[in-house]
Simulated scan of single mutants.
Amino acid sequence: MARRSRKDEILQAALACFTEHGVDATTIEMIRDHSGASIGSLYHHFGNKERIIAALYLEGTEQYAQLLADGFASAKDARDCVRLLVTSYIDWVVANPDWARFILHSRGRVEASERADDLREANRRHYQRILEALAEYRAKGVFRELPIDCFASLVIGPTHDFARNWLAGRTQSDLGACRELFAESAWQSVRSV
């Protein structure tokens, strides 16, 4: 297994500090102490805490986007693609619950930061990949007619809502155990009859 880069070590230390102390209460010094990085290294890679927050957010969302891209490359049909949108999300959240909580609570902060344009561009690329993966099936009429923004909400909305509640400890069912239920429900909600 490859050794983590110093940048990745700092990001993981920041996540641990944010999880334990909260984003607002975490200081650069706490992140430095937890990561073992010098203050110079921290500032070299990120500059300040807000940039660490944005980098951690963008790295997490990129991991999910990469899971999707890898899955789309081997998807056999429209059903596989739609189910993949859900299963990749669930798999990433279950494997990274602290990171997922951080992302759910930090979007507004990143949108208001100097990295807001980076976030918008990452989201644009992510949604473009999804649209491209589904375009052939949409053209063939595999999906029922609905506005594209409704399509995305129908597919991932219920899963996202349940994941938020699961991450907050407000569900009796385990998110991973509901993986197939949400994936198949997403497919049933958008397929043409």
Rank of each mutant, 00 (worst) to 15 (best):
R3A: 08
S5D: 01
R6H: 12
R6D: 13
E9K: 11
L11C: 06
Q12T: 00
A13Y: 00
A13H: 01
L15K: 02
L15W: 00
F18M: 07
T19W: 02
H21W: 14
H21I: 04
G22N: 09
E29Q: 05
E29W: 00
S35H: 01
G36A: 01
G40W: 01
H44M: 13
H45C: 09
F46M: 06
R51S: 12
A54C: 05
A54R: 05
A54N: 07
Y57M: 03
Y57I: 01
L58F: 11
E59Y: 12
T61K: 14
Q63D: 10
Q63C: 04
Y64F: 13
Q66F: 07
D70A: 06
G71D: 02
S74L: 07
K76S: 15
K76N: 15
K76C: 12
A78W: 03
A78N: 03
R79H: 13
C81Q: 01
V82H: 02
L85C: 07
L85E: 10
V86A: 03
S88W: 01
Y89Q: 09
Y89A: 06
V94A: 14
A95V: 12
N96Y: 02
P97R: 11
D98N: 09
D98E: 12
R101D: 14
R101Y: 07
R107E: 09
R107S: 04
A112M: 05
A112G: 11
E114V: 11
E114D: 15
A116C: 13
A116P: 15
A116H: 14
E121P: 01
N123V: 10
N123D: 13
R124Y: 15
H126T: 01
Q128A: 10
R129N: 11
I130C: 02
L134M: 10
Y137T: 09
K140D: 15
K140Y: 05
G141N: 08
V142D: 08
E145A: 15
P147T: 00
D149G: 06
V155I: 12
I156Q: 13
P158I: 11
R164V: 00
N165T: 05
N165I: 06
L167N: 06
L167C: 08
G169F: 00
G169D: 01
T171Q: 05
Q172V: 08
D174T: 03
R179G: 08
E180Q: 07
F182G: 06
F182I: 02
S185Q: 14
A186L: 09
Q188W: 14
S189T: 14
S189E: 04
V190T: 10
R191C: 13
R191F: 07
S192W: 07
S192Y: 12
V193T: 10
